[in-house]
């Protein structure tokens, strides 16, 4: 059952990601991107990371994609100019290199039998406290400093975006 869900969601995610690249209009790319993010959220659920799946839908499919669609609507995007020969050669070389990368990663990385450790988050702990409670316990103790740094980064990002986009008088 899990395998069927995984194959369907993964397949749809891969097809949607391909359509992001091949879609003619930028807006269509953005909409395929939303579908791809939803499928990734379902894969997170299959991996028992429900909290992350909610964040994926809210932050990625909600906030970031809304940003991108806003930007597309504000810019008047015409078709890309026809590619020159030099860029076509670089495309062929680039895609060839990526195929080699894919084969390497799948043959060596995925099929290799990796050793696993028994970490602190056992199924019993999760069953007792619930996933979100366990996550928040770790987030506000071991990961408190990165958490605060992330909040500072987000504030700096917002201020930077406003300063950049402000029209000069």
């Amino acid at each position: 059952m899990e395998l069927v869900f995984l194959l369907i969601c993964g397949g749809v995610a891969v097809i949607a990601s391909l359509l992001v690249i091949f879609a003619r209009s930028t807006l269509h790319s953005a909409l395929w991107m939303v579908l791809s993010f939803f499928m990734v959220a379902i894969i997170y659920v299959l991996l028992h990371a429900q909290f992350l799946a909610m964040l994926q839908v809210i932050v990625y499919a909600g906030a970031i994609m809304m940003f991108i669609v806003y930007a597309i609507m504000m810019l008047n995007l015409r078709q890309e100019a026809k590619s020159k020969v030099a860029t076509r050669i670089s495309k062929v070389v680039g895609v060839g290199a990526l195929i080699v990368l894919f084969l390497e990663l799948t043959l060596i990385g995925v099929s290799h039998n990796m050793a696993t450790i028994q970490g602190p988050v056992t199924d019993k702990l999760v069953a007792t406290y619930g996933r979100v409670a366990v996550i928040s316990n770790f987030l506000f103790s071991d990961y408190l400093l990165p958490f605060e740094v992330a909040s500072i980064l987000l504030t700096a990002g917002v201020v930077g975006a406003v300063v950049l986009a402000k029209r000069e008088k």
């Binding site: 990371a49 909290f51 992350l52 964040l55 994926q56 932050v59 990625y60 906030a63 970031i64 940003f67 991108i68 806003y70 930007a71 696993t116 450790i117 028994q118 970490g119 602190p120 988050v121 056992t122 199924d123 366990v134 996550i135 770790f138 987030l139 990961y143 990165p146 992330a150 980064l153 987000l154 700096a156 990002g157 917002v158 930077g160 975006a161 406003v162 950049l164 986009a165």
Partner: peptide, 26 residues
């Protein structure tokens, strides 16, 4: 690995991606 480290890594990737989206689109 019965560990939460990967999940926190994804959490911070999301935070960085959000900041990146704001600055990049500007």
């Amino acid at each position: 690995n019965h560990s939460l480290d990967g999940i926190f890594m994804v959490l911070f990737v999301m935070a960085v991606a959000a900041a990146e989206a704001a600055v990049g689109l500007a």
